[in-house]
């Protein structure tokens, strides 16, 4: 059974057709890059998969069942913008995750946060943007989920933090789980991707195995993307 299946998904906001007939299959055990320019529908698609928006038409199945309460238990989602109350202390956020998610491994989260030299009693609002991003990623990756969905996890952080984020993703996703990473910062991330999905103007225009595409085009995914979407 496929982990995730999107069948003929369309999403309109008023007259604007944001997603047009998206068909997508995500198997188990893959790291997939959802790549597209800003405003092409990446976040909308991710919100649909997380049941935060309802498609205008079409169907989304996770482990063969329609998205809903059950699928939220096995999907761990890092949104583009934080939903955490920044006046909270790290330790409070950990408790919050413990209560909310049965599959949250707080031991693991605490260990990873300790590796960051982070005081669990400090407030989110007192941390740098990069540190806030790291804390949120640690929380999301500390859930034993089947599917991790990371929306722009690299946005606005320095290269050293990017490396930390990529390492954390690689070393912490469950065996057999899949990871979807949406980004437009392709060169930083492409070495860890199994497959890429190019999305443009609400349509999927290419899906491919990463190394096969490199071999075929004799260039990096970043280069192929730039060529394809030249403004």
């Amino acid at each position: 059974m496929n982990l995730l299946e999107c069948k003929n998904i369309c999403k309109d906001f008023g007259k604007k057709k944001v997603l047009k007939n998206i068909n997508l299959i995500i198997p188990k055990g893959k790291i997939i890059g959802l790549l597209g320019k800003n405003g092409t529908g990446k976040t909308t698609l991710i919100k649909l998969i997380n049941d935060l928006l309802v498609p205008t038409s079409g169907e989304i199945l996770i482990n063969g069942k329609p998205v809903g309460v059950e699928s939220k238990k096995i999907v761990s989602y890092l949104p583009e913008r934080t939903y955490l109350d920044k006046s909270m202390k790290v330790i409070d956020v950990i408790k919050y995750f413990e209560e909310f998610y049965d599959n949250f491994d707080s031991k693991k989260a605490k260990k990873l946060l300790k590796d960051l030299d982070l005081d669990l009693n400090s407030k989110l609002s007192k941390m740098s943007k990069g540190m806030q991003e790291k804390v949120q990623l640690v929380l999301v990756m500390s859930r034993r989920a089947d599917l991790y969905i990371l929306d722009e996890p690299l946005g606005g952080v320095d290269p050293a933090t990017r490396d930390y984020i990529l390492d954390t993703i690689l070393s912490n996703f469950n065996e057999g789980a899949s990871v979807i990473i949406s980004t437009h910062l392709i060169s930083d991330i492409e070495r860890i991707l199994d497959e890429v999905i190019f999305i443009d103007k609400g349509k999927i225009i290419l899906t491919s195995d990463t190394d096969t595409l490199r071999e075929k085009e004799n260039s990096s995914i970043d280069e192929i993307f730039r060529r394809m979407f030249k403004c």
Partner: peptide, 17 residues
């Protein structure tokens, strides 16, 4: 596979291949 993936910072499937 997992250790090599971490060491070389690549996807486990790439190591497998």
């Amino acid at each position: 596979v997992r250790d090599l993936a971490l060491e070389y910072k690549v996807n486990p499937n790439t190591v497998q291949k």
